[in-house]
Design a protein around this nucleic acid. Sequence first.
RNA 1: CGGGGUGUAGCGCAGUGGUAGCGCGCAUGGUUUGGGACCAUGAAGCCGGUGGUUCGAAUCCACUCACCCCGACCA
Length: 566
Amino acid sequence: MRFTRLLGRTLKEAPADADCVSHRLLVRSGMIQQVAAGVYSYMPMGWRVLKKIENIIREEMDKAGGQELNMPSLQPIELWEKSGRLASFDKTLFTVTDRKEHKLVLGPTHEEVITDLVRRSVQSYRDLPQLPYQMQNKFRDEPRPRGGLLRVREFIMKDLYSFDADETGLDNSYQKMVSAYKNIFSRCGLPSVMVEADSGAIGGKASHEFMLIADSGEDEIIYCSKCGYAANTEKATSIKKSAPLPESRDIEDVATPGLKSIEEVAAFLGVSHDQTLKSVFYVADGELIFIVIRGDLEVNEIKLKNLLKCTELHMATEAETKVSGLVAGYASAIGLKGIRIVADDSIKLGSNFVAGANRTDTHLKNVNYPRDFTVDILSDIAKTRPGDSCPKCNQALLAQQGIEVGHVFKLGTFLSERLGAYYLDKDGSNKPIIMGCYGIGVGRLLAAAVEQNHDEKGIIWPLPIAPYQVLLCPLKIEDGSVMEAAEAVYAELCAANIEVLFDDRPESPGVKFNDADLVGVPLRLVISARTLKSNSVELKWRKEAQAQMLPLEGLMEAIKHLLKPH
RNA sequence: CGGGGUGUAGCGCAGUGGUAGCGCGCAUGGUUUGGGACCAUGAAGCCGGUGGUUCGAAUCCACUCACCCCGACCA
């Protein structure tokens, strides 16, 4: 490809609203263009990268037994009513109305359609397992798109769905996908981490995410450097440290005028945070829930949501708590009636706690569970934080930011039961098909690759996903001999099927070199009067500082050798 | 949903009531050429939209749309 013919110019300055590195560099290098909030066009060069990633994914999916197919983005809303996921997607669903006033949704994912499709095609255990997949645009009206391609409203996702007759089959499919995913990310040249993940309100038993480590990542990964435990913060657990456990004493009032927060109360009474009980109020599907947790810990809303099996959860507003007659700042589970109480199991790890008295300006000392109050549910609902003890080996946990690029779920039979996807087993009985689903955000992966591979000058594409393998860069193209040599090398590279971007622009060396670094093509070949003096070209890897000279004689063989994997 | 911010040439920005500006980029000609060169000439804007105030509005007021950021939080 000739640079002068390429659609999409490089920019010295990125749009002011481009905040994260990948957004800035992808826009500046002319790979993407914003169309609306969270909606982007891929320019030819960006599209080449995307296709490369897609092809690697496609090869690994096929190798694992997947079959590619295509499904519509327009989906009848009835399918979503039937699956019961209309409510859980709620406002993130894009809907359209056709001329007959019939509502359709723009698919945020394709589980409903594929389950319905498989329902029609699969009747017997002999037809299983099935591993259909697709790479298509999905639509989600995110509350807040951000970070360029990292969080968008229309995006390309690879989704594979597994359909198995039994749990063993599901385990098998799941394992196939896990190893396919590992292959995909390593073939892309992108080191990834697999972590335990929350499977959401609908999800089944097991779920893992694949993360690319990057400071700009939205997700926090909790991991153990000793035993290898790794989980999304949403899911992570830890061995909770016990607070002091003195003999229980009699409960007593203590005046705490104007003191409401754990911070204030603990400081006033001279106790540490883990010797207090914190009360928090949530509203789950309209029901006010009273939460008790040890004062040094915080509530993990995802764990709480899963525990309550609710679809909507938010912290109660002042108005919502007032209605129930609770005394904000001084609320307590002691003597409380008519409201469900959920407690974190940390309340057992300590005694003689300080807690609210349900009276303004008053707290209670020496509160003990279960002596002084009861709870409806006692479970782990605390946020795990770095420094906590690893649930497997007790080592102090560490944290780092990651970008979620892949997610695998064991779905179970939730959808097949609701959508009627049953098969006839050997024994003649009807059974729901057991499902799994396995997604990769292709555009996000592209952006994450840039987050992971760049320097102050620009992108540094890993070779397997680079838009071009070679950038051919003649200096001073008015010089007949330079351009003649460059044209000859260009023709040879094309003939050898090497992907080459030919910078045939009449620009100064500085401009060309800076654009070369910005665009991030792995191998740069410079031809100039200087190199021609020794019948050679200059060769430089984007990721390395040093250049070397290569003789024109035998150049193609040398380059082919350099581009060979490993 | 709440809070804040920004809309002026392709991009980045200045312009607080009186003829629409700068830098980069773009076009033409010339001089340059190993890390974002220089000179000259030129094209390019319904100042996000609607309504108002005014002799006069990019500028003041109201509404509206779009985009960006922060918060979705421990009483």
